[in-house]
């Protein structure tokens, strides 16, 4: 089982067909999966959401998932955050020559399982093989289309003063997991696994339970801190964050303590931030907490008229200060 991907697998001939049949078709098989140049789909009329995302992650397998699972979650979650039920996806692979076939199979299997969990069909794909050293293992790009729920009207520009800010669970676990998986700092945190998960089954219940939600955004790169600044800017509002109410798993806190990092800037891959009128917050939190993986959902702040574009943090001593704007590479602070 030491088989590896070769340049021949990407040359378009018999080996390419073999690779597709054996790895991708075997896992992705569904009635809409096409052998032609494009999948032909019949969609009901209505509003559609349509998005694409590229995935590179090193290492490509990590506790709680792999790049395959990530590539489905990322796109499915972007659709979900617009109130769209994910329907169909395509995926494009760029694989490094010499990449272990076994790993590729695990990645494809994770994609299939995650797609199934998210209720989405993978209908077309593409495979390229790049020379050794030209890519790092495997890069995946996924594109997804979904149907927007009838009454959903979600946008990053709709947050309003008086909205509560809700996060769907403890933050920063994906970023922390990847940091540790790179094994640069000799730190282990056995309980810390990526939060990577498809979120339609979390978004749909809250949209059904609570009409009038203004914004849902998934916190990915840059973490929850970045989402808060994005929405403050896009909606031209201020956000007051209650630092003590932000849920953080103990292991993540420990790692951040050692490396001088702030969990608010660590990536999540299965967390959404919701902006909705304050009155509806208890119902949203209750609904979230009944969804698997969102048991730690909490209100973490509110939207204000003051300080448009800024995120003000209520600190543990009851003082207000600015949350520093996220920027640049996350670097441990030691000395």
């Amino acid at each position: 089982m030491n088989e590896r991907v070769t340049l021949a697998h990407g040359a378009g001939g018999q080996q390419t067909t073999e690779l597709i049949d054996r790895v991708f078709k075997a896992h992705f098989s569904n009635p809409d999966f096409t052998a032609d140049d494009a999948a032909v789909l019949t969609l009901d009329a209505g509003r559609l959401a349509f998005t694409t995302d590229g995935f590179i992650v090193s290492p490509c397998e990590f506790p709680g998932g792999n790049i395959g699972k990530l590539s489905i979650c990322g796109t499915v979650n972007d659709l979900s955050c617009m109130g769209a039920k994910p329907l169909y996806m395509t995926c494009a692979f760029v694989i490094e020559e010499g990449f272990p076939m076994e790993t590729l199979e695990r990645i494809a299997a994770a994609m299939a399982a995650t797609a199934k969990e998210a209720g989405v069909r993978i209908v077309a794909g593409d495979t390229k093989v790049a020379g050794r050293g030209q890519v790092d293992g495997v890069f995946i790009t996924t594109t997804g289309i979904g149907r927007v729920m009838e009454k959903a009207n979600l946008s990053g520009s709709r947050a309003k003063a008086g909205d509560a800010v809700i996060v769907s669970g403890d933050i920063g676990r994906h970023g922390c997991t990847i940091l540790l998986a790179r094994n640069e700092f000799g730190i282990e945190a056995p309980d810390v696994k990526s939060d990577c998960a498809p979120l339609w089954s979390t978004v749909e219940p809250i949209l059904r339970a609570v009409p009038g939600i203004h914004v849902i955004r998934d916190a990915t790169r840059g973490g929850v801190g970045t989402v808060l600044y994005e929405i403050a800017g896009q909606s031209r509002v201020g956000i007051c964050l209650d630092a003590a109410s932000v849920p953080v798993a103990p292991g993540v806190r420990g790692v951040c303590g050692m490396l001088g990092l702030e969990p608010l800037y660590l990536a999540c891959e299965g967390r959404i931030v919701i902006f909705a009128p304050k009155e509806s917050a208890p119902e949203i939190v209750k609904t979230l907490r009944s969804c698997p993986g969102s048991e730690d959902a909490a209100v973490i702040g509110e939207v204000t008229e003051e300080d448009p574009g800024k995120v003000v943090m209520l600190t543990e001593i009851g003082a207000k200060t600015l949350l520093p704007r996220p920027g640049g590479e996350l670097l441990p602070r030691i000395c």
Binding site: F185, M258, L259, E329, L331, P332, R333, I334, C335
Partner: peptide, 30 residues
């Protein structure tokens, strides 16, 4: 190096820019 030094500007460039020019710069904890 500790992560703290990576972005500090030198007269011409920081360690981060040296890394983008091919230098091998590792962030360590200890």
């Amino acid at each position: 190096t500790f992560g703290d030094l990576i972005r500090v500007p030198g007269s011409n460039m920081s360690l981060a820019s040296a890394r983008s020019r091919g230098a091998e710069i590792r962030t360590v904890y200890s």
